[in-house]
Structures are given as C-alpha cells and as structure tokens.
Design a binder for these strands. Structure first.
Lengths: 200, 200
DNA sequence: TTGTTTATTGAATATTCATTCAATATAAAT
DNA sequence: ATTTATATTGAATGAATATTCAATAAACAA
C-alpha cells in the first residue's frame, strides 16, 4: 500500500536515468536508451513522466537528495559532541570518499540548468542553505566560538569548500591534488581558529 | 592574406554557436540551427568542423579565451603600480560587470565536459593556472607581502572567488546578492591582510 | 463477479539529428 | 588563360529523437 507500484517504478526510472548519465553524459541520454537499460518500452516511461523536462527534474531531485544524504551525516556526527575538534570537522567536510557513490559530472551538468530554469535554481539554492544551516548548528556547539557570528563563519567555510570542489575537479595527479587539498583544508582551519567578528 | 576566409568563417560559426547557446542552452543547439542563425547550409559548417565534437571544442576555446580576455586586464592594471591597494584589487576581482559579455550558463555547461573529456579538462586547468599566476605577480608587487608565499595566497584567493562565482549564481535577489558578495570580498581582504606564512 | 482504474506493451508518428555527396561557384596559383 | 584548390550550395541519407495511441494485461474496488 505504502510502496505502490507507481512510486517504485518512478524511482527505478530515475535511477536508471542516473546510471546512464554517469556512463554517457546527460546530454547523450534519451528516453529510448533509458527504456533499453531498464528493459521497458519508452512509452512506459512517458506514462510516469509525461515529458522529458519532468524526467530531468526528477533526476535533479534525486541528485540533490543524494548530495544531502551524503553530507548531512558527516555533519550530524558532531551534533552530539559537546566540544568540537576543528581538525576532525575539516577532514570530514573535505572527505571525498563518497566519490564512488556520487558522480560530479552529473552534478555539474544539472547545475548548469540553474541558469535557465528557476525551479531548478531554487532547488539548488535550498540545498545549499540547508547545508550552511547545519554547519552553523555544529559551530554553535563550540564554546570557543560562542558569541561569534557562526552564520557568517559557515558562509565563509562553505564558499571555500565549493570553490575547492570546483577547482579540484580539474586535477588528476594525486600528489598535486593532495597538496591543493591541504591548502584549502588549512584555509578553513584558519577561518575557524581566527578571532571572528562578534554577532551584531 | 592574414585574415583568410577560413579563419573568418570559423570564427563566425563559433560565435553564432555561442549566441544560440546563450539563448537556448548548449544541449538544444544543433548544427542545422546554427546554419539557420547564420544563413548558411549545415554542410558548410561541416566543411569547417568535420564533426560536432570539434565544434564544441571550438566553442570552449572561444569561451576560455573570452574569460581570460575579461579577467586579465582587470589584473594587469595593477602590474604597473608599485604599491597595491587591496580594496581596489578585491573590487576588481569580484567585479561582475562583464556579465553582459559573458554567459555563465554556457560556461558551466562547458565546464561539465571536463568530467568526460580530458582535452577539455586540461584547457580549463590551464586557464585557471594562468589566472593564479597573474595574480601572484600582482601580489608580489606589494611590499607588505614581500617574502610571503604569494603562490599560496593566490591559490586561497581564487578558491574563494570560484566558490563565490558558483554560489552567487543561485541568488537572484539583489540585496541578498550584495550582502553575500560583501562577505566574500571581506574574506579575501582578510586573506591579503593576514600575517601570511613565509615562503619556504 | 463485475466494473474501473492503472500498468504495460508495441507499433506508429512527425520531426530533428549529424553527416555525406555531388554539383557549382569563386578565388588563388601557374 | 588554364589549372588547381577551396568555398558554397542544396538535396539526400538513415538513425535517433520525444511523444501519441490503441490494445491488452493486471490490480483494485464494488
């Protein structure tokens, strides 16, 4: 009753779509290809997603959900602790162990849609606001940061993380990658340990 | 002799391609559409770019060239001055006045290719290295930064700029945009004015 | 059990896609 | 002026595209 066929099948289709995007790139995936991948006629896909835009919207929903699914637990682990280990936090924030689960190419392909689709833009924005909000909660646990503007600090931290995500994607050589990564980790550490402006 | 027809026409095609991408999005532009836009048969386009990948490669070359064309003069103005005004530099680095000339949607659509095309990845990387290099030269002019690791500093500055570029693209409301922008500008200013590690 | 809704199929649609080709025009080289 | 190379055209290709439709099967409600 809860897991009615409609819900299951829609999920199945989106996941097939996502797998194909990983392998072939979003721009090369057609409804027919998704059908072949899943062993179902294209008309069945159209039965659940009445046009391609809805399918892409579904994909983006899936990606952002997954993005959050990976990021949130990393942050939430700190919610229990009363004290904050900045080094541990930074390592977690930059841990890219999820790379196996999460495809950056699909993420950025979908990101490019924000410039021409306001629905998608808002979904992306909502996610990023949520992540900043969670980080603020973590930072507030730290007594060293009490009475500091943790909203501001979360903003500054995440902009480095996102810049790093963008920039590091271009770097293949592991040694170079590690070296740049350390720079950005330090940059965030310095932000946390800096004498921060007080909340106004 | 210098501007032979071949060069002119190829440029014309790429620029038409770019205009269409701005309006309709990279994924919706076909060779036939470019032809219609320029009033030439698709076969002529194929005569100059023997397949679509080469056309996309040409577009990316064009975009990166334009990106650099906008950024470099902003930086080079400082090369003459013997002293450095950090506020002025930061304002220039974040000046988005070029938004009219440069389309962010096309930029990120093309960026997404780096994940599946190593040629494109390297072109993007080359550009970013060059920009960091130029910034380092600027920073080296500042006596306050003498004997500091300006390579490192340039890296830290640009990762904020790029994170900001990514993040601010989601924000429509001008007031909110301005407020976030100021945060990131300050963040870079603090980096410049911080006691920086010495060069090893 | 009957009726009704939903799921699934497979064939068909018109359109658009990248690409090819042969023919012609134009320019450059001799 | 004649040859040679390049530019340009327009028509044609088959494959792939998103989407529609009518028919059947399965699930569900009465």
């Amino acid at each position: 009753m809860k897991t009615d066929i409609r819900t299951v099948r829609k999920k199945e289709i989106i996941e097939g779509f996502y797998e194909l995007c990983k392998r072939e790139g979003l721009e090369n995936v057609s409804i027919a290809k998704i059908g072949k991948q899943l062993g179902m006629p294209p008309s069945l896909i159209m039965h659940y997603f009445s046009n391609k835009r809805l399918l892409v919207l579904g994909l983006i929903d899936h990606i952002l959900h997954q993005y959050q699914l990976i990021y949130k637990p990393i942050l939430l682990k700190f919610e229990k602790d009363s004290s904050l280990d900045p080094n541990l936090l930074v390592n977690r924030l930059f841990s890219r162990e999820w790379n196996l689960l999460f495809d950056d190419g699909v993420f950025f392909s979908c990101y490019a849609f924000i410039f021409r689709d306001s629905t998608i833009r808002n979904e992306y924005k909502k996610l990023h606001l949520k992540l900043r909000g969670t980080l603020k909660i973590i930072l507030d646990k730290d007594k060293n940061l009490s009475q500091k503007d943790t909203d501001l600090l979360a903003e500054k931290i995440f902009v480095v993380i996102e810049g790093a995500y963008y920039y590091l994607s271009m770097i293949e050589e592991p040694k170079e990658y590690q070296q740049k990564l350390n720079i950005f980790k330090n940059q965030v550490l310095e932000l946390i340990q800096m004498k921060q402006e007080t909340t106004k």
